[in-house]
């Protein structure tokens, strides 16, 4: 069973307590953006086989949305972090690099 630590309340929550919310760090394009940008924002996903930055909600706990970095093949969790950010923090990137030297952010 997948267990993630909620960065807000500190609880180690198992997945039945959490709701998955898909890829993290999608940026909504502004007014005047092209159809292509909007299609990308709404539908196109990285869907990587490997490191994935994703949103989770601690539904049955504090109710807050947070982010996690997880490997989609092994379910190894590299860390969880606040949703109040537009990109993964340096500490998370360092934690991934330490365990996956070949990994490059895309």
């Amino acid at each position: 069973m997948l267990i993630l630590r909620c960065p807000y309340c500190g609880v180690h929550a198992d997945e039945t307590e959490l709701t998955p919310g898909g890829e993290a760090h999608l940026t909504r394009p502004g007014p005047g953006a092209s159809d292509d940008d909007f299609e990308g924002y709404l539908f196109r996903r990285r869907n990587p086989r490997g490191v994935h930055f994703e949103r989770w909600c601690h539904t049955c706990g504090c109710g807050k949305w947070f982010h996690a970095a997880r490997c989609t093949v092994t379910h190894q969790v590299f860390g969880t972090y606040s949703a109040q950010t537009t990109e993964p923090p340096g500490a998370i990137i360092a934690a991934i690099r330490a365990r996956r030297p070949d990994w490059t952010p895309t």
């Binding site: 069973m1 997948l2 997945e15 709701t19 998955p20 989609t72 093949v73 092994t74």
Partner: peptide, 14 residues
């Protein structure tokens, strides 16, 4: 189906 991205070919037991 599970609600999160995975390539692990095994699902959540719940």
């Amino acid at each position: 189906a599970d609600g999160y991205n995975t390539y692990a070919q095994r699902g959540s037991f719940h």
